[in-house]
Simulated scan of single mutants.
Amino acid sequence: MTDFQPSIEFEKDIYLPGEEVTGRAWLSTNKNLKAKSVEITFTGKSVSSWKGGKAVPAKPNQKAKEIYVEMKHEVWTPDDEENTFPSGDYEWKFSFELPKNCPPSFEGKSGFIRYSVLLHIDVPNGKAKNIERAVTVSPIIDLNNITGAGEPIKMNVDTTAYFCQCMPCLPARGNVVYTLSSPKLGYVPGEAVTVSGQINNGTSKPIRIIQAKLNRRITYREELQGKAKNKKRNAQNADGFKSKIENQVLETKIERCNIPPNTNSDFAFAFVIPPVIASIRNSKFITVDYFVSIWGDTGVCNRTEPASLNILVGNVPLASGTASLPPQKFVDGNAAQCWNAYLKPEFTYQIPYYGI
């Protein structure tokens, strides 16, 4: 089958949920060959996969897979019993409808959400010929349609400051209480998110540094239902899932201060949302969340947890008056490409991919 030159082309590079993915597949051969059939398959799926225990340190194992759409069309069959595929040029147009609520394309270190078209040529008594190309699906997260997206958010977090991080057996030295608020829950890339509030220093040491971070948390999940070896659940998988967390710091800001013991002080930080993928909450095994964390440093060997305020990142701003998407930024191009192998020892980003 070395004379085959198959290709796949989409009518455009980016599609939205509910749209039809259209394009064409074609191939050329300069002599008669053998083939039992030619099929075109459109698939949308998420896969989570990460390394196992120490017994298999370098090879990832697929943990979970969710299929959003899968459609197959047989576009060619032979006219004779010899399975003759005559020489010439062939073209097949295709059209596949995306589900209205499907999650967007996403590439992570321990999984992906991917939509692709596969051209499969079934070769009798030989290795099948396949070519696959992925298409980028952009989300439609209209903040105007999400309850509470435009409402102010506020929370109080009480954290314990331990005397020494390296010696947790020592007694705690007080509490740090945070009050965090933001004018609204929902933002879009390019908008500034402001988080303000107050720190109440209930420890015996002064707070001299306040650190604020804009974070992204990607959660990859493995479903444990039906796996006998996981019948004994712990706190991590009490809900029937086992998770792997990937935390990414998008921006960090530091403010020097002096908050004596048993006093409080106000703070305010602002971050501009970079061109990232919107929050993903409609995938069973991969979720993407954003939050701003605030942390007061109470000194050497400090051991306290930061206080976090979740925000929602969409791509249609509040009170925009239109459902059209703002300009999107894609890294190194504007159309995703499939990997040659289904799983590799290390997940690497497709170029381009949606996000940063």
Rank of each mutant, 00 (worst) to 15 (best):
P124K: 06
P183G: 06
E222N: 12
T159M: 15
S243F: 08
N247D: 15
N215C: 11
K229C: 15
P6R: 02
N315Y: 08
N200E: 15
P99M: 00
S182R: 08
F291S: 11
T252H: 08
D297I: 04
P57H: 03
E91R: 14
Y290M: 09
T219V: 14
A228M: 05
T194K: 10
S243C: 13
E66G: 06
G53P: 04
G186S: 12
K129I: 14
I140H: 01
K109M: 06
V195T: 01
D266L: 11
F85V: 04
M1D: 02
A341T: 15
G186D: 07
S196K: 02
K36W: 03
E74L: 07
W92P: 04
L214Q: 01
N315M: 03
Y178G: 06
F94P: 01
D79P: 10
F94C: 05
V75M: 09
Y353C: 13
N237Q: 01
S49H: 08
G355T: 09
T263M: 11
F241W: 13
V123S: 03
P6G: 05
N32M: 06
V193W: 01
N230Q: 15
I277E: 06
S87M: 10
T194Q: 12
Y90K: 12
S28V: 13
S7V: 14
L98K: 01
I294T: 04
L180Q: 05
P189E: 00
V300R: 14
E251D: 07
C169S: 12
F10A: 08
G240Y: 10
I259L: 09
E82K: 12
K59H: 11
V188K: 02
V193T: 07
K127D: 14
F85K: 03
G150H: 02
W339D: 13
I210Q: 06
I245E: 10
R133L: 10
V177Q: 07
S243K: 12
S110T: 01
N334Q: 09
F112E: 02
F163Q: 15
P317N: 06
M155P: 00
T22M: 10
N247C: 09
Q165G: 13
G296Q: 09
P206Y: 09
R256I: 10
V47F: 02
P327L: 00
I140R: 01
T348F: 10
I140D: 01
K36M: 05
R133S: 09
K100H: 02
E9S: 12
E20I: 05
N201G: 08
N215M: 14
G111S: 05
V123M: 11
E151H: 11
E39G: 08
Q328R: 10
K232G: 10
Q236C: 03
K93C: 13
C257A: 15
A172T: 11
E82H: 13
C164M: 12
R216K: 15
F163S: 11
V331Q: 14
K34M: 05
N334I: 09
N315D: 07
F267T: 10
R216Y: 02
L119E: 12
A238G: 09
K127N: 10
D13L: 08
F42P: 02
V313N: 04
N215G: 06
E91V: 11
S28D: 14
C166W: 11
K184S: 09
S293I: 13
F112G: 00
V137M: 01
